Measured scan of single mutants.
Amino acid sequence: KEFRPGDKVVLPPYGVGVVAGIAQRSVSGVSRAYYQVDFPGSRSKAYVPVEAPHSVGLRKAL
């Protein structure tokens, strides 16, 4: 896996977040693995496909 729990990442347009782990989510009846990204200071979460994280701009924070 490219990202691990605890990694600081950037996800446009949300900003800097932390990978909380990998979650299985069902979309249109198909279960897939997603990185769960939490954003400190907020209750917001984002789910990014493990198979294509760069397709939505997910990258490691510098």
Rank of each mutant, 00 (worst) to 15 (best):
F39G: 00
R4E: 08
L11V: 05
P13R: 08
L58N: 03
R59P: 03
S42G: 12
Y35L: 05
V50W: 06
D7F: 02
R25F: 14
R25N: 05
P12G: 04
K1D: 13
I22Y: 06
L58K: 03
K1M: 15
H54V: 05
S42F: 12
Y34G: 00
G21T: 06
G41S: 10
V27M: 07
A61D: 09
R25Y: 12
A61K: 07
P5M: 10
F3H: 09
V56G: 08
G57K: 04
V9M: 03
V9P: 04
V56C: 13
Y35N: 02
L11R: 00
A20C: 12
Y35M: 02
A52H: 10
S55Q: 10
D7M: 06
G6E: 00
G15A: 02
V48N: 01
K1Q: 14
G6I: 02
A23R: 13
P13L: 09
S42K: 12
D38S: 13
V50Q: 02
R4Y: 09
S42Y: 11
A61Y: 15
K8S: 08
E2F: 11
S28H: 14
Y47E: 03
R32F: 07
P13F: 10
Q36F: 06
I22H: 02
E51V: 05
G15Q: 01
P49D: 08
Y47T: 01
P53M: 06
R32M: 10
G41Y: 11
P49E: 05
K1N: 13
S26L: 14
L11N: 00
Q36I: 15
V56R: 08
S44T: 14
P12L: 08
K8N: 06
S31Q: 11
A33G: 06
S42L: 12
V48K: 00
L11I: 05
P12V: 06
A20Q: 10
K45G: 04
Q36C: 10
G57R: 04
S44V: 15
V18A: 02
V9H: 01
Q36N: 03
P12A: 07
G41L: 11
P40R: 07
S26H: 08
Y35A: 00
R25T: 06
V16Y: 15
V48H: 15
D7L: 03
L11Q: 05
V9S: 02
P40A: 09
A20N: 07
V50A: 03
A46S: 04
V16E: 10
Y14V: 02
A33V: 10
S44L: 14
V48Y: 03
A61V: 14
V10E: 07
A61E: 08
Y35Q: 00
F39Y: 02
A20G: 06
A61F: 15
Y35C: 02
V19T: 00
P49Q: 05
S42A: 09
G6R: 02
G57M: 06
R59A: 06
R25P: 02
H54E: 14
G41M: 09
V50K: 03
G17M: 02
S28D: 15
D7N: 03
V50M: 05
K60Q: 09
V37G: 00
R25M: 13
Y34S: 00
E51L: 07
G29H: 04
F3Q: 01
H54T: 08
P49R: 05
S26D: 11
R43P: 14
V27I: 12
Y47I: 03
V18L: 06
A33Y: 14
Y34E: 01
V37T: 01
F39M: 03
V30C: 09
K45E: 06
G41F: 12
V37K: 01
E2S: 11
G21K: 10
D38A: 12
P5Y: 06
D7I: 03
V18G: 01
P5L: 12
E51W: 12
V56L: 07
S42E: 08
K1I: 14
R32G: 14
Y47S: 02
Q36K: 10
V10H: 09
G6Q: 02
P53F: 09
A46M: 11
E51R: 05
A33P: 09
R43A: 12
P53T: 13
R43E: 12
V48L: 03
V27Y: 09
S55W: 07
E2Y: 12
L58Q: 02
V48P: 02
A20D: 03
G41I: 07
V27L: 07
P5R: 11
P13K: 08
L58H: 03
Q36H: 06
R25E: 04
Q36P: 00
H54M: 08
S31K: 11
G29M: 02
